[in-house]
Write a protein that binds this DNA or RNA. Structure first.
Lengths: 324, 324
DNA sequence: ATGAAAGCGCTAACAA
DNA sequence: TTGTTAGCGCTTTCAT
């Protein structure tokens, strides 16, 4: 691979001049510019970003760490991030922690070692990863889930209110024994959605905790169906879990919404194509990503500013699965 | 941020010794090791990967460039890649080209500048990006879609045979006017699936080309429905397009499979939950990712070996949408 | 077994 | 406007 010195020699100038040309400094003689550009083309020269990053002590890469790239929520959010990042001159690389704290720690370590310009993270709950980030000087924005014990810029939705609306919706529809399937303790979305459910319910809550995956939703629903306190409606605190629950009900021949009503949190792409179509609490995913990216860009320019928390609204989308 | 020299001073040794300790060289006195590790902990030292990469002239990051992270096909494939990469000591960063050749070129340029250890790419069709990769010394593996004009390691499925099977399946079910919705010209999957369709059909093909997105499938189906040669069945050459087609049929009140039969290429996660459930040509997505990662790891160790092409089989999954 | 020193490729003072 | 030079933080000979 040719270096900047090869280009300099070829063009008959110094490496500094090549650097100036390539970085668009205006203080270069047009004739030199032409010679340099010719040499660059002829040699097929491509600047070594590693060397540049080392010298400048900064990079133009953002790491976005999400717990599940298979979850449409995150892919849509990432789109929002990308669109803003690109405008601001950053490239986005996606890291999939797969809901595993260990993998999350690995990716956080990599992002810090690689001196990434910033990190956007939807925490899988690793306290260690959170501490690493907070102890480092790297700008961080937490999305979807609050960072454990972290005072950082955060973009979330109003989980509690969304869950309350979903639960109230089921009660209003005439269901009387409404259960809740939620995620692991310590993950803020799981806890807040549970709290919203409990608040709306009034009576004695029936709760199953599982992981945020489709299989978790399936298993949780199976458990509820065979429990003595079998519910006639379920608020499921995530989209993938809701799909699992729906599949479980279909497998068991339980009629939805007749025998059991269902509301999920967060849209699924084909909520209107599944049968019965799925009532959901929709989140402004793309906007959430945009907002997070804007906060990160601001944080990079003003590292000392006070951390902001942005709470975006949710919207109940009533469909067939909750229409008794 | 503390550097290796800070650690060296703190531990009362040279930077070279710190480096040896941190890289697990066995030729270091145990007492020194202990002192170094203590210093590392106390200072919260984290090696600067940028500097290391520069010095070593190599990195441990793989770039995986896909055209659509919202497509479950790619997320599943990425999982397979990740699992192998991790074992081999690499971290995977995902780049979303969003079916845009320009974005793809940006990411390829970034991967090359950043001296990534390897690139796995599902091309969105950019000839320029392909040329950049081929001209560079970076190990490359093409997945899903062949790299334009590229003699590189490639992992694909048997697109032609899969399309043939899907079309034959529709004919066998009694449909007689089978159309095809496929992707952009120049993208190998689009062209090969079209060829398989035409081969199985025998008669005069009815083809609509669009992009590989849900909206594209919707629009293509709408066009077919109002065309004079209105088909009674459609082979749709991608999963997202098939969903779009299904939605279009639902919106128009066209009965599936009665009035129009439908087969999609590649699974969708909830193919069995949508109504009617969707007949698909399933691909071994996870295995495809694993295979690609293995090829890349091998390529890195043996750059001169002859490029291999792996073709994986597909499997028809008959469901309701094609059961006349 | 350890340290001194060179250098990966680039940018940014500084000097001319 | 251009070139010289130092140095970003690390690894790796080469001496010792």
């Amino acid at each position: 691979m040719p270096t900047i010195y090869d280009v300099a020699r070829e063009a008959g100038v110094s490496a500094a001049t090549v650097s100036r040309v390539l970085n668009g400094r205006r203080t270069v003689d047009p004739e030199m510019v032409a010679r340099v550009l010719t040499a660059v083309r002829e040699l097929g020269y491509r600047p070594n970003a590693v060397a540049r990053n080392l010298r400048r002590s900064r990079t133009t890469l953002w790491a976005v760490i999400v717990p599940d790239i298979g979850n449409p929520f995150f892919t849509s959010t990432v789109r929002g991030i990308e669109d803003v990042a690109q405008q601001a001159g950053y490239s986005v690389v996606l890291c999939n922690s797969d809901e595993s704290p260990a993998k999350e720690e690995t990716y956080v370590a990599a992002a810090l070692s690689e001196q990434m310009a910033g990190v956007i993270i939807a925490s899988s709950g690793s306290v260690k990863a959170a501490r690493c980030l907070l102890d480092s000087p790297v700008p961080v924005v937490a999305i979807d889930r609050e960072l454990p014990r972290g005072a950082v810029d955060t973009v979330v939705v109003d989980n509690e209110e969304g869950a309350r609306a979903a639960t109230r919706h089921l009660l209003d529809a005439g269901y009387s024994r409404v259960a809740c399937v939620t995620g692991p303790e310590g993950v803020s979305t799981a806890d807040l959605r549970l709290r919203g459910y409990a608040a709306a319910l009034g009576g004695a809550p029936v709760v199953v905790r599982t992981d945020f995956r489709e299989q978790g939703g399936y298993d949780a629903m199976a458990a509820l169906l065979s429990s003595p306190a079998r519910p006639d409606a379920v608020f499921v605190a995530s989209n993938l879990m809701a799909v699992g629950a729906l599949r479980c009900l279909a497998d068991r021949g339980v009629e939805v919404p007749g025998e059991v009503g269902l509301v999920g949190f967060d849209e699924i792409p084909w909520a209107d194509l599944v049968r019965p179509s799925l009532t959901t609490v929709a989140q402004p995913t793309y906007e959430l990503g945009r907002m997070a990216a804007r906060l990160l860009a601001d944080r990079i320019t003003a590292p000392a500013a006070r951390p902001a928390t942005v709470v975006l609204p949710t919207e109940l989308r009533p469909r067939r699965s909750s229409a008794r």
